[in-house]
Simulated assay, not measured.
Amino acid sequence: MKTFQSYSELAACVGQEVAVTDWITVTQQQIDLFAEATGDHQWIHVDPQRAAQGPFGTTIAHGFLTLSLIPRFFEAAFTIAGARMGVNYGLNRVRFMAPVPAGSRVRARLMLMALEPAAPDGVQMTWQVTMEREGGDKPVCVAESLARNYGAAP
């Protein structure tokens, strides 16, 4: 995990890949729990027998489950010393480019695209998050994620 000592140190990374996270496994249990939480019980996600006959040969994670891993990847990749709070601010663009079959391992590449002040004492960061599946030939998700952080040294 990378620790930034100040927002200035982080700002020096604009335009660069800041981190590549460790792999995490997306389990069928996570997929089922996500279906329960959201009410999205489409068979391609939660019915292994039917999904075995479908286009991917198995169940796949919901696109929004894949997207919801972004905060986990940020938390594992870096910290900003002295920060008292970080919040998700939104997304500018999201594309789900390939499925995430149950049992797949995924990771994220985090590129800092922009950093600007956010009152009263923070910054807004724009990140390009490229999620890849181990053994996959293209990203599973590419998202432009906005995050705000407050309280660290300038």
Score class of each variant (00 low, 15 high):
Val46Ser: 13
Arg50Thr: 15
Gly136Leu: 04
Ala51Ile: 04
Ala61Gly: 15
Leu69Ser: 01
Met131His: 03
Phe78Cys: 11
Gly90Arg: 06
Tyr150Leu: 03
Pro55Ala: 15
Met111Trp: 06
Phe96Lys: 12
Gln28Leu: 04
Gly15Lys: 01
Val140Ile: 04
Pro55Tyr: 01
Asn92Cys: 03
Gln16Cys: 12
Val100Met: 07
Asp40Ala: 14
Ile80His: 01
Glu36Phe: 05
Phe64Thr: 11
Gln30Arg: 09
Asp121Gln: 10
Ala61Pro: 04
Cys141Leu: 11
Asp32Asn: 15
Pro139Ile: 03
Glu36Val: 11
Arg105Tyr: 03
Gly103Phe: 08
Gln49Met: 10
Phe73Ile: 05
Ala143Tyr: 05
Val20Phe: 01
Arg109Phe: 09
Ala51Glu: 03
Gly135Tyr: 03
Ser104Thr: 10
Gly90Asn: 08
Ser145Asp: 14
Gln16Ile: 04
Arg72Leu: 08
Val14Cys: 03
Phe56Arg: 08
Val14Ser: 05
Tyr150Ser: 02
Gly39Lys: 06
Met125Glu: 15
Val106Ala: 01
His41Trp: 12
Met85Glu: 07
Arg148Met: 11
Leu69Gly: 06
Thr38Gln: 13
Arg93Cys: 02
Leu10Thr: 05
Val14Asn: 07
Glu134Lys: 14
Val46Trp: 00
Val18Asn: 04
Gln42Trp: 03
Glu17Phe: 01
Pro117Ser: 11
Gly82Ser: 13
Leu65Trp: 12
Gly82Val: 11
Gln29Leu: 10
Gly122Ser: 09
Gln49Asn: 13
Ala102Tyr: 00
Ala119Arg: 15
Gln124Gly: 00
Gly122Ile: 03
Ser8Val: 10
Ala81Thr: 08
Asn149Glu: 13
Arg148Trp: 09
Leu69Glu: 04
Thr3Tyr: 07
Gln42Thr: 14
Val94Leu: 13
Ile60Phe: 02
Thr3His: 05
Gln124Lys: 15
Gln53Lys: 13
Tyr150Val: 02
Pro55Lys: 14
Val123Gln: 13
Asp22Val: 11
Thr38Ser: 14
Val87Glu: 01
Ile70Val: 11
Val26Lys: 02
Gln30Trp: 02
Gln28Met: 02
Ala118Lys: 15
Ala108Arg: 00
Thr58Lys: 12
Ala153Met: 09
Pro99Lys: 10
His62Gly: 09
Gln30Ser: 14
Trp43Val: 10
Gln29Phe: 05
Ala102His: 00
Ala147Cys: 12
His45Trp: 00
Trp23Val: 09
Met85Ile: 13
Val94Gly: 07
Pro48Glu: 04
Ala11Cys: 06
Tyr150Asn: 04
Ala114Leu: 09
Arg133Lys: 12
Val129Ala: 04
Pro120Tyr: 09
Tyr150Ala: 02
Leu69Met: 11
Gly135Cys: 03
Met85Thr: 12
Met125Gly: 08
Asp40Tyr: 12
Ala153Trp: 00
Ala12Ile: 06
His62Tyr: 12
Val20Arg: 13
Gln128Leu: 10
Gly136Val: 06
Gly122Pro: 00
Cys141Val: 02
Ala35Asp: 10
Gly122Asn: 03
Pro154Asp: 15
Gln29Tyr: 06
Ala118Cys: 02
Arg84Met: 03
Gln128Phe: 02
